[in-house]
């Protein structure tokens, strides 16, 4: 008998059901309400919600506290752990604590350098990298032991994920890196924002070749651009995001007031182009500070909840 999936996300991806995840923008608020309102805007359209870990090296609402609030509201979180702020002691402590409050999906990333954020004078940790972060958590999961060998009373049954960025160099290496993370314990993957479909396809071809057509579940990261100016800012200032000029030009054709709509349409076009590709298990929508756009993108691409399971 195959074991019961550890989370709804795991169940969907293991059964090959097309999956939609979305990232909630963590508010700079000291109230639960602000987070719950944003998450509830996403919930009807996605299967699980990513909670970032002070993304962009800017302090935000604690990821574990946010996960706890989502769980209270019957929303499944995918909690992101980065290597920037925690050493191996803190990581292991937080993982078992998160498990105890009901977290099952953990997503491991390297994390942006402190220079990217608003506290560039902070000391970066990077005791682990994304691969050893995975091996560390996988060690807890499969052996029920800390790295030191000290035993837990049980094994935390987690579903581990990792990031892949096919859109930046070294391009040839990116599929191999995904497989390295898979070997280290990652069961599913979400990509960085996809704006370059051709680049994504060549990555996918390489991945399909390396895995004999059976890659681990891969969700394509997408998101709407608010304006051409925002797209340029994103490209220049956020590491790892490549917005090709032709995408920006498409939005720039419209007057400023209509660019927001054009940005959503460009995102819909990208989802439509990638959703049926072999090797794509779902999409991951990152609409920074713009949760309302997610419903539009999901509906327009025929990926609403009952529809996408037919």
């Amino acid at each position: 008998m195959t074991p019961k999936p550890v989370s709804d996300l795991a169940r969907r991806l293991e059964h090959g059901l097309f999956t939609v995840t979305a990232e909630v923008t963590l508010p700079d608020s000291i109230e639960k309400k602000a987070l719950v309102e944003r998450a509830q805007m996403l919930e009807p359209y996605c299967d699980a919600i990513n909670i970032t870990d002070s993304t962009g090296a800017v302090p935000h609402f604690s990821n574990i506290a946010a996960a706890s609030i989502l769980i209270e509201n019957d929303i499944e979180p995918i909690i992101q752990f980065s290597c920037r702020d925690r050493n191996r002691i803190a990581v292991q402590a937080d993982v078992i604590g998160a498990y105890a409050i009901g977290v099952r999906n953990i997503f491991c990333v390297t994390g942006d350098g402190v220079q990217t954020g608003d506290h560039p004078e902070a000391k970066p940790v990077f005791d682990l990298d994304s691969v050893t972060l995975l091996t560390t958590i996988n060690h807890l999961k499969t052996r029920g032991k800390f790295l030191s060998g000290r035993e837990l009373d049980d094994k935390p049954n987690l579903y581990l994920g990792a990031a892949v960025n096919p859109f930046v160099p070294p391009f040839e290496e990116r599929a191999l890196r995904l497989l390295k993370k898979h070997k280290a314990g990652a069961s599913f993957f979400q990509t960085q924002y996809c704006f370059d479909i051709e680049r994504f396809k060549s990555f996918l071809d390489r991945l399909l070749g390396l895995t004999k057509g059976a890659p681990p579940p891969l969700l394509v990261g997408v998101g709407p651009l608010r304006s051409a100016r925002f797209a340029r800012w994103l490209r220049e200032n956020v590491p790892g995001i490549d917005v090709p000029e032709h995408v920006i030009e498409k939005i720039e054709k419209y007057p400023r007031k209509e660019q927001q709509k054009a940005g959503v349409e460009a995102c819909i076009e990208i989802v439509d182009a990638v959703k049926t590709l072999t090797g794509v298990a779902g999409i991951h929508v990152m609409a920074y500070n713009w949760e309302a756009s997610v419903s539009e993108i999901v509906k327009a691409t025929g990926l609403s909840k009952p529809e996408r399971d037919n």
Binding site: T110, G113, D129, R177
Partner: peptide
Amino acid sequence: CPKTLRNGPCGGVRSNGNCEI
């Protein structure tokens, strides 16, 4: 590597192949 990564590049590499940091 400014992040002392030992298992491959992070996702922040610039399009010209230079370091994020």
